[in-house]
Design a protein around this nucleic acid. Structure first.
Ligand SMILES: [Zn+2]
Ligand SMILES: [Zn+2]
Ligand SMILES: [Zn+2]
Ligand SMILES: [Zn+2]
Ligand SMILES: [Zn+2]
Ligand SMILES: [Zn+2]
Length: 483
DNA sequence: GAGTTTGAAACT
DNA sequence: CAGTTTCAAACTC
């Protein structure tokens, strides 16, 4: 609790005027906390703002506007132990065991996902899927395997209450099975390492099972579908995907595969969040903590009728507002039972902008050209982008839409996914290349034109997305055909 | 982290 | 269209 308070009371900007004259090292920069008035921009109007692991240079207006929208979070952990140094495995495991006694995870998915994924049937974030019975923030962070900064970026800290005298226990949902965390096997470290080390383009499909879920009974959390990365594999009829999704999730969805592939999951209609951050050090932490949920084990659900409201005085406790949700779900057990949180606007802002977690680094395009991956994906740049003179911001939406239209007039397919699932019919003209039943049924809609890379590395868009080159490609000396 | 290579996007 | 320039990511060291 106290930690949260500190968090919220802090100034949102941990900014430092770009110190040109004296190059201070990072540690010092981080130190600068709260409320340095400092307004007066001296020589340059640029401020260097730290957000997560990234430092963003922006002018003061930008900072101000961002701050108003609470896009900059304060840094709770100036040096998080898990981040700064490799962690002791045994210690971690002990902490993990401890955590398991503190937190009941009712979802068979990664706690990050469980926290953040909205339930599309009711629009609520299924916070109820984790009931922190007095959760220790640090402990949870470590167990999740993120460094403090990235942990903050997730916004989870707001959800997690410190233990207090009166138990803050959340009301378990009767009928909803609870799951316990299940560890990786200790010997599996190499496996974890292997996929942690993988560098995957954010639009690429991953071969690694980054998130593996097993279900209990017929429990099919709606969030699973969202977890799948659909950025590339766009085989849906292309119309109002979001609405269609919402509908679809209501009923059908049937047997989605229990294995979820992909690195990012949606936190909003157009936003995504990587489950694991890209920071090497975080990976290291992750590796050592081995805290990924790979399975689900049912536990008995202890029903308590505690109605821990009493949130009058303390506004910090923005989480946990019980309200009954009337949704005529088929699953009657869930009906009316979802405890739920009211999201603060701050949090919504945060979430809405986490999608750009893997940001661009555009320097000259102002992020309003297709060079920019954010722009290309019809997204806005966010806190993690390290672009210069970015104009691809939400508050600039009208302009952006115009620009998009302009580009579309030039190329109507400019914003479409570059790869589509191959149509069932066999392709007609095929040269020496691919085309006949490639192991991957992805096809680049335009084909690549690689000249020197032999289509054997990620310079090639076909290769990058795991697709074979096809007759559409005009590559030279292609090494990526169907052999 | 800096520097190089690369091919798509943008431009002419 | 083609040829060139620009660009940011992929890659290398
Ligand atoms: Zn950009
Ligand atoms: Zn961006
Ligand atoms: Zn940008
Ligand atoms: Zn190629
Ligand atoms: Zn190709
Ligand atoms: Zn090729």
């Amino acid at each position: 609790m106290q930690a949260i308070q500190n968090l919220d009371n802090r100034n949102h900007i941990c900014a430092e005027r770009k110190a040109e004259e004296s190059k201070m090292n990072c540690d010092q920069v981080v130190k600068t906390s709260a409320n340095t008035p400092k307004s007066e921009p001296l020589k340059s109007d640029k401020l260097e703002v730290e957000y997560g692991h990234n430092k963003i240079e922006c002018n003061s207006e930008e900072v101000k506007s961002k701050d108003q929208k609470n896009l900059f979070t304060p840094l709770m952990f100036e040096k998080s132990p898990g981040y700064m140094k490799p962690r002791n495995l045994n210690e971690t495991m002990n902490q993990y065991q401890e955590l398991k006694n503190l937190v009941q995870v009712k979802s068979p998915v990664h706690p990050m996902a469980a926290f953040l994924q909205k339930d599309p049937s009711n629009g609520l974030t299924p916070f109820n899927q984790i009931s922190p019975k007095g959760t220790d923030l640090q402990l949870y962070r470590k167990t999740v395997g993120l460094c403090g900064k990235h942990f903050e970026q997730t916004g989870l800290n707001v959800y997690i209450s410190q233990s207090e005298s009166e138990s803050e226990e959340e009301e378990p949902i009767p009928g909803v099975p609870e799951f316990s965390l299940q560890d990786f096997d200790k010997e599996d470290v190499s496996d974890i390492q292997s996929f942690c080390d993988k560098k995957i383009h954010k639009n690429a499909l991953s071969d690694a099972d980054l998130l593996e879920c097993t279900f209990n009974d017929n429990e099919e959390p709606n969030l699973l579908e969202d977890l799948a990365d659909e950025r590339v594999l766009d085989n849906t009829p292309k119309i109002d995907k979001q609405k269609a999704n919402k509908k679809a999730k209501k009923c059908s969805k049937s047997k989605s595969k229990p294995i979820i592939r992909g690195k990012r999951f949606k936190t909003g209609e157009d936003t995504e969040l990587p489950i694991f951050c890209n920071d090497n050090n975080c990976f290291e932490t992750l590796l050592n903590s081995k805290s990924i949920i790979s399975g689900a084990v049912q536990k008995t659900s202890k029903v308590t009728s505690k109605n821990g409201d009493k949130n009058d005085s303390n506004s910090m406790r923005k989480r946990k507002v019980k309200n009954n949700v009337q949704d005529q779900k088929t699953s009657s057990t869930r009906k009316n039972q979802l405890s739920n949180i009211r999201k603060s606007t701050r949090l919504m802002n945060k979430e809405a902008n986490l999608g750009e977690c893997k940001g661009c680094t555009c320097k000259r395009s102002k992020c309003i050209k297709l060079y920019c991956e954010c722009f290309l994906s019809k997204g806005f740049c966010g806190p993690s982008c390290t672009c210069n003179d970015c104009e691809n911001m939400e508050e600039n939406e009208e302009e952006i839409v115009k620009i998009r239209e302009k580009i579309l007039s030039r190329n109507p397919k400019a914003f479409e996914k570059k790869l589509k699932i191959e149509e069932a019919s066999q392709p007609l003209g095929m040269g020496s290349k691919a085309a006949s039943a490639p192991s991957s049924n992805l096809r680049h809609i335009k084909g690549c034109t690689c000249k020197r890379s032999k289509c054997s590395n990620n310079y090639c868009e076909c290769h990058q997305h795991g697709a074979k080159c096809t007759e559409l490609c005009s590559c030279i000396d292609c090494n990526n055909g169907s052999d």
